Amino acid sequence: MRKWISYFCPLIMILILTSFRFGPASELEVPATLKVSKPTPVLFPQNKTYEVKTVVNPPFLGNSYVGFKEALAFKESQGDYFVINTLGYLGKYQFGVGTLQLMGVYNASNFLNDPELQEKVFQVNVARNKWILRKDIQRYAGRRIGGIHITESGILAAAHLAGAGNVKKYLRSYGQIDFEDAYGTTVRHYMKKFSGYDVSDVLPERNARI
């Protein structure tokens, strides 16, 4: 009796496992209502808002351009491509509609649902700001203003936050004119936080657009 059990038990187990593995395909099929066939429509900006939380210790990826953009993205949105903050700023890098239009992007829904486009827009914006601020980068990078060591990456990060015009005012007033966004973040803060990254991979480009 024991020999019979020891002989047939493994066969029974194999039959049970096989029935699970090769069951009817219809049991595993995703319902049509759950399938994604096109980007999720976004009624900008009323239907979806998120409070962006500041995280003290973002992941460190070195001082390369990749480290720069990922650190900036983490500060802006914790790296979430699909977030809209309470002021209507969109995506991983928190772009406003006006800035997107300057770079040739006119559909907020498409932008929010396209991570690849968001990455392209970020790089185009860095190239654009680099051109606008090229003289200020040459003049002020390496100096200290208000106790902050000014670097190219700090200038470009501050331009992402406040716009190139406000960064010029900050630098040319030696820190006396500072910009503060609705959450209390200043040009000075970004100058300090994003100092020392290597952003030489992106070349300045006049009127850069997608």
Rank of each mutant, 00 (worst) to 15 (best):
201 D>Y: 12
138 Q>T: 08
125 N>F: 13
157 A>V: 00
143 R>Q: 15
123 Q>P: 02
128 R>W: 07
97 V>A: 15
89 Y>T: 13
99 T>M: 12
156 L>T: 05
101 Q>A: 10
100 L>S: 00
166 N>Y: 08
152 E>C: 08
195 S>P: 01
106 Y>A: 05
163 G>I: 00
209 R>D: 04
177 I>F: 05
128 R>Q: 04
183 Y>T: 14
172 R>E: 11
188 R>G: 09
93 Y>L: 07
199 V>F: 01
110 N>P: 00
140 Y>E: 12
165 G>F: 06
204 P>F: 05
190 Y>M: 05
130 K>A: 07
135 K>T: 15
192 K>S: 12
89 Y>V: 14
91 G>E: 07
90 L>N: 02
106 Y>C: 03
155 I>H: 05
160 H>W: 14
111 F>V: 06
173 S>R: 06
88 G>R: 06
181 D>A: 09
87 L>P: 07
156 L>Q: 03
184 G>K: 11
103 M>I: 13
165 G>M: 07
192 K>I: 04
181 D>N: 13
172 R>M: 02
91 G>N: 05
174 Y>V: 10
194 F>A: 07
118 Q>Y: 13
147 G>Y: 07
140 Y>R: 09
127 A>R: 00
119 E>W: 07
179 F>M: 04
161 L>P: 05
111 F>K: 04
123 Q>R: 13
194 F>T: 02
156 L>P: 00
97 V>S: 10
96 G>T: 09
158 A>Q: 01
90 L>E: 08
170 Y>I: 06
99 T>V: 10
198 D>M: 12
147 G>K: 02
157 A>W: 06
190 Y>K: 05
175 G>R: 09
138 Q>R: 12
161 L>E: 00
82 F>K: 08
193 K>R: 15
84 I>Y: 09
197 Y>W: 01
87 L>V: 15
200 S>L: 07
109 S>M: 09
157 A>R: 08
135 K>G: 10
139 R>S: 13
102 L>P: 08
197 Y>V: 00
84 I>T: 11
104 G>N: 02
204 P>V: 02
206 R>K: 15
201 D>N: 14
105 V>E: 01
162 A>T: 05
162 A>Y: 01
165 G>T: 13
123 Q>F: 07
123 Q>D: 11
208 A>F: 00
198 D>A: 05
161 L>Q: 02
154 G>S: 03
123 Q>T: 11
130 K>H: 03
86 T>L: 14
183 Y>N: 15
87 L>Y: 15
150 I>E: 11
151 T>M: 11
191 M>D: 01
126 V>N: 00
146 G>A: 03
96 G>N: 01
155 I>Y: 01
142 G>D: 12
141 A>L: 07
182 A>W: 11
118 Q>N: 10
135 K>R: 14
115 P>A: 08
102 L>R: 07
132 I>W: 00
168 K>H: 14
152 E>P: 04
117 L>Y: 01
104 G>W: 06
108 A>H: 01
112 L>D: 03
191 M>G: 03
84 I>R: 08
202 V>W: 08
154 G>A: 06
149 H>V: 12
189 H>K: 15
146 G>P: 05
151 T>P: 03
198 D>R: 10
134 R>E: 10
178 D>E: 03
